Simulated scan of single mutants.
Amino acid sequence: MNVVLDCIPCYIKQSINTLAQTEITEDKAREIIHQTLSLFPHLDPQGTPAENSTIILRKVNELLGIKDPFHKAKKESNDLALKLLPQLKERIRQSTDPLFITLKIAVAGNIIDMGILKEFDVEGTIEEAMVKDFARDDYASFEQKLKGAREILILGDNSGEIAFDRLLAEQLLESGIKVTYAVKDRPILNDATMEDAAYVGMTEQVRVISNGSGFLGTILKDCSEEFKQAYKKADLVISKGQANYESLEGLGKEDRRLYFLLRAKCEIVAKNLGVQLGEMVFCCS
């Protein structure tokens, strides 16, 4: 998915949301925004929104002198999600289709996106996800392919959300599927890293690997050999969130192992998916 003109305000919004995690003055924040604007003419117009956003955000972090501005917020979102797990596990236990419900819960967790949304209602979004259909729903084909699958790779997205992904990983394990979960190699926005995976107990359940990259999304050319091998070996791949969709959407047209699980949180992504803003998607391409 290539960038469009409307992506530019989002780069600025993500930068402002990053600055809001700190205690710098408004004058200093304004200065940092002005310094990042000089990068805009040099962004690749044929690149993906995830790639270009990362370039801007790295500059913001550099100017702040802070490696992970979202560190405190990520812990808070992890704690919030962990508190909800017992009741969600009970809901899964009572379901007639536990895997489908865990996919709904996992996509509801995708609302935890501090780069785009300043405020979000996780519990309300979960309840909404339970009663609403996927706007694009390829669950039937996924179920069919799952019968012959031995290994699944899940591409993680945000902190907090990763706790709900743990429920999905556990459900797949119960089906006899080997699960590998991939996180970012280093902090970018509130994306999940190995620290988050350990904090929510994901590392106790499945094999967790770094993708070797600090980009938003999954930029394969920037990923480690370990990740590339895991991607190649997987029978199915579940790609969580918008940035992963932005960076892998082109590949998904040919790779029928790849399923996108996300909530369309911007008009550009929604249009590309052919859905309405805010709708949930579980689709193969």
Rank of each mutant, 00 (worst) to 15 (best):
L5W: 01
K13W: 04
L19D: 14
E26N: 11
L37I: 09
D44L: 13
G47S: 14
E51Q: 15
I56K: 00
N61G: 10
L63F: 11
K67G: 07
K67V: 11
F70E: 05
K72G: 04
A73N: 02
K75H: 11
A81C: 08
L88V: 08
E90L: 12
I92T: 04
S95M: 05
D97L: 07
L103P: 00
K104A: 04
I105P: 02
A106K: 02
A106D: 00
V107I: 10
D113H: 13
K118W: 01
G124M: 11
K132W: 06
A140E: 12
Q144Y: 03
L146H: 07
I152K: 00
E161P: 01
I162P: 00
I162Q: 01
L168E: 06
L172G: 03
I188D: 10
N190S: 10
N190W: 02
A192R: 02
T193K: 07
M194F: 14
E195G: 11
V200A: 04
V208R: 04
F215G: 12
G217T: 09
I219Y: 11
K233I: 10
K233D: 07
S239V: 06
G241H: 05
N244K: 03
L248P: 00
G250E: 14
E254T: 09
L258Y: 02
Y259Q: 09
F260W: 14
L261Y: 00
E267V: 14
L277D: 07
E279H: 12
M280E: 01
